[in-house]
């Protein structure tokens, strides 16, 4: 990180190549990626429960069709925002491979980022079948018709990707301090499951636990899943959407800064090991 003023320029120049290498990697392991996608069963598990539950009438404004739209779209959002950097960092720190990365003139963080970004085109492609199912089962009725909202959906998804990547990389960096941080990641993941709208749309909480409901809008988890989904379904008007987008941007920025700090201090420790 302390390679003088030109390190940013080097990184920028190397980034397209890193992306190409990452894309080739993703294509090479495409079968594994399909299996990984198939492990995303949680949205369908929860769709089954809530679809049955809404048979008697909509819950918090979510009817059966809208719940189907919500959870099928949730599957796609999960594919588009998926990262695995925490596993890679844990592995490379445990086996000492991080040293090789540190020798390169490009920051390892940029390398990780390129690898995770480069899988996106393939992930989009593999999400198409689910999008077709969504279009066939639900159609356009349940979704927002405002182009401005859809622009914000794209922005919200990009920021969601950043939030997920940064929080994963922060927890991965903690392996420099704790030898292994995969359990910490699982804990974070548990909080994400519970509080992001991944298991149930957060508006289900509004009437019964209003304080929790409002508090959750201040945490990063909501922006990783629930917020983009609610935007797509047209549940926020433009003003409210902008407000939440602002909070989301703050989280992305804050986590990015935190990552820079934690990483810098962590790499110093790594050097101190003599590795």
């Amino acid at each position: 990180m302390s390679r003088g003023p030109s390190s940013l320029a080097i990184t920028l120049r190397a980034f397209p190549t890193l992306l190409r290498v990452g894309f080739a990697d993703a294509v090479a392991y495409r079968a594994e990626m399909v299996v990984w996608m198939l492990t995303t069963t949680m949205p369908l598990v929860n769709l089954a429960l809530w679809h049955t539950a809404a048979a008697g009438g909509p819950i918090a404004g979510f009817g059966q069709t809208q719940l189907t739209a919500y959870f099928l779209a949730s599957f796609i959002v999960r594919q588009l925002t998926g990262c695995w950097v925490v596993w890679e960092m844990n592995f490379e720190i445990r086996t000492g491979r991080l040293s090789q990365r540190l020798l390169r003139p490009v920051s390892p963080l940029a390398g990780y980022m390129a690898e995770n970004l480069a899988a996106l085109p393939l992930r989009v492609l593999l999400s198409l079948p689910m999008a077709l199912v969504l279009a066939f089962v639900v159609g356009g009725r349940e979704f927002s018709h405002d182009p401005a909202i859809w622009l914000m959906v794209v922005l919200a998804l990009c920021l969601a990707w950043l939030i997920i990547f940064f929080s994963m990389a922060i927890l991965g960096t903690l392996a420099l301090y704790l030898e292994s941080s995969s359990s910490l990641w699982f804990m974070w993941q548990g909080l994400f499951f519970a509080f992001s709208g991944y298991l149930f749309p957060l508006p289900f909480l509004e009437a019964h636990a209003p304080r929790l409901f409002h508090a959750l809008h201040g945490l990063p988890f909501y922006y990783q899943s629930g917020f983009p989904l609610e935007l797509m379904l047209g549940r926020h008007d433009r003003a409210a959407a902008l407000h939440y987008l602002g909070i989301e941007a703050c989280w992305a920025l804050g986590l990015g800064l935190l990552l820079a700090v934690v990483w810098r201090a962590g790499v110093k420790r790594w050097n101190a090991y003599g590795a």
Binding site: N46, L49, A53, A60, G190, L199, A207, H208
Partner: peptide, 25 residues
């Protein structure tokens, strides 16, 4: 700790389910 947390979080949807008066036949 994570094991405990996960087991308890598994109950959260059920609680939301109950509070919303939903039912499975």
């Amino acid at each position: 700790l994570t094991g405990l947390l996960f087991a308890l979080l598994g109950l959260l949807p059920l609680w939301v389910f109950k509070r919303n008066g939903a039912a499975v036949p």
